[in-house]
């Protein structure tokens, strides 16, 4: 084995990222879901740090710290506050049962890996195997958004999807320019606020956070 040790660590972190994505997919409790999201942020932050160290790119250190602050501390805290305020500690309801979701998840992973294989061939960077994992975690987050009935898990899914994209950016191309990252971070933060407000509105209108109620909003003349 001639893979450098830092790359091995990045591989390991990438795998953990995927693991967390699956854990989120199988999670039934909102609180645990948010905690998992925080863990995912932590993994992301550490992996960014390792990439920064191994490639000696200083702006990645800033991204790592930014990720740590935003995704491990601020956003989970916000979400925790949100569910306390909304008093929604109930179990997550899923549209499809969890084992089936898992099987679909496995199929998605195989699909993503095979999709990423030709892309990875093009990339010359040390971490080219990782695009598949990043793609898989994006798809899994999207799957989570699809299969969840309640609004909060959907937001977590959205945020997790962003994590996957971020991971692809840092590991495969050694990060985006810092300005872009700051912009995205801000976007995510603002997005979360907007979602928060949206939740409150949703609850006031329907007395529930079940987004299936939104079907009532459509033009219903008949």
């Amino acid at each position: 084995m001639s893979i450098p040790f830092t790359t091995q660590i990045i591989y390991l972190l990438a795998s953990i990222l995927l693991l967390v994505a699956f854990a989120m997919l199988s999670q039934r409790r909102i609180l645990s879901l948010i905690n998992l999201f925080a863990w995912q942020g932590l993994v992301l932050s550490v992996s960014t740090f390792v990439v920064a160290y191994s490639t000696a790119q200083h702006h990645l250190y800033y991204s790592a710290v930014l990720t740590l602050l935003l995704k491990v501390l601020v956003l989970p805290w916000l979400l925790h506050r949100l569910i306390r305020k909304l008093n929604v500690k109930w179990d997550v309801e899923t549209l499809i049962n969890i084992p089936t979701t898992m099987l679909v998840g496995i199929a998605l992973v195989i699909f993503a890996f095979n999709l990423a294989a030709p892309i990875s061939q093009l990339s010359e960077s040390i971490t080219r195997g990782l695009i598949g994992i990043a793609l898989a975690s994006v798809l899994l987050s999207l799957l989570m958004m699809i299969t969840r009935r309640k609004a909060v898990p959907q937001v977590v899914g959205f945020l997790a999807m962003e994590n996957g994209l971020f991971f692809a950016a840092t590991s495969a191309t050694h990060g985006m320019p810092l300005v872009v990252e700051l912009g995205i971070a801000l976007d995510v933060l603002v997005g979360t606020f907007i979602f928060g407000i949206f939740f409150f509105q949703l609850r006031e209108t329907f007395d529930s956070l079940d987004i299936t109620h939104m079907e009532k909003l459509k033009d219903d003349n008949s």
Binding site: M1, S15, L18, I106, I110, F113, G129, G132
Partner: peptide
């Protein structure tokens, strides 16, 4: 699957 992807 990860073994097949990453070779590790």
């Amino acid at each position: 699957l990860i073994h097949f992807l990453l070779g590790a």
